[in-house]
């Protein structure tokens, strides 16, 4: 059945080029010695990267985003862990519905999540917007991804291993900690990295809920209005893309290791 796919392979390569087109342009303009982002290219410079180090407001935004992304990754993975473990345990009435409801933000338009949270936080609870309001929303958006990743880890787990630990005198918690947790650890790391990446990059919701200190994407959005700052954004984008690729590669490595640990064949990507 499996050939090399001839025409389809050509199409697939063309499609990959389409997918990567914007990312390939990024470093080209980041090192281009011109303020206008267009062809023809002018010459090589690292000036735009130097400028990143001296932009104070950017450092603040990056610090905010890193803090938000870290908190989000921990909280979303914790909630994902609960849901995925419950999903792998005994059935109870309404289980499918409840898990489906928690997964809902995956298909809900982001702007709906953004405006509904904004109304509750500002108009009903009268809270001041801060990093925590962004974290609250990002946890909501990232939990479904965590569940999807951790579901894979839990459903491949042999329940008899934990039962064996219980029979040998461990209590519920220590059996989980000593037997199950190490086995799903690769899934946990993978889920944290994915949640971190999503949160770091999320703009649509953060724009509504960010406080007086903008997150990095909100800061970038502000810069997009000023033509003079565009090359700096290209430099920043180059660093971000490199960082995302590194984080995702590590996440993918742990995901595969988790599958291998569970003795399974690898069938697909993150979702």
């Amino acid at each position: 059945m499996r050939g090399n796919g001839g025409g389809l392979r050509v199409y697939a390569v063309a499609y990959l080029i389409f997918l990567y087109a914007p990312i390939i342009l990024l470093p080209i303009f980041a090192f281009n010695d011109a303020t206008i982002i267009a062809f023809p290219l002018a010459g090589f410079t690292t000036h735009w990267f130097d400028e990143l180090w001296t932009t104070k407001a950017l450092h603040e935004a990056v610090k905010n985003s890193l803090m938000i992304a870290f908190a989000t990754s921990v909280l979303a993975t914790t909630l994902g862990l609960c849901a995925a473990r419950a999903g792998a345990m005994a059935d109870f009435p309404g289980k499918k519905g409840i898990i489906g409801f928690v997964m809902l933000p995956l298909v809900l338009p982001d702007i709906i999540v953004a405006v509904s949270l904004l109304i509750v936080l500002r108009q009903v609870l009268d809270l001041t917007l801060s990093n925590w309001t962004v974290i609250a929303a990002h946890v909501l958006l990232c939990t479904p991804f965590s569940i999807a990743i951790l579901n894979g880890a839990f459903q491949n787990l042999d329940p008899s291993m934990e039962e064996a630990a219980l029979d040998l005198g461990e209590n519920r918690w220590s059996a989980f900690r000593l037997v199950t947790l190490p086995l799903v650890m690769p899934g946990i790391i993978s889920s944290m990295l994915i949640a971190f990446t999503i949160s770091l990059d999320e703009f649509i919701v953060a724009f509504f809920l960010t406080g007086s200190n903008p997150t990095m994407p909100v800061y970038i959005w502000g810069l997009l209005r000023f033509p003079a700052s565009l090359p700096i954004i290209m430099a920043l984008g180059t660093i971000l893309v490199a960082l995302s690729v590194v984080l995702l590669t590590i996440a993918e490595y742990f995901r595969r290791r988790g599958l291998k640990r569970a003795g399974l064949k690898d069938t697909g990507g993150f979702l």
């Binding site: 609960c82 419950a86 999903g87 909501l140």
Partner: peptide
């Protein structure tokens, strides 16, 4: 069964208060 219900409640309550309630609010 009870343990599964107990475990699913934190993510459910989170989604309930930060998704279902806000959707009701809009």
């Amino acid at each position: 069964r009870g343990r599964a219900v107990l475990l699913v409640s934190p993510p459910f309550l989170y989604a309930f208060f930060l998704l279902a309630v806000p959707l009701g609010a809009i």
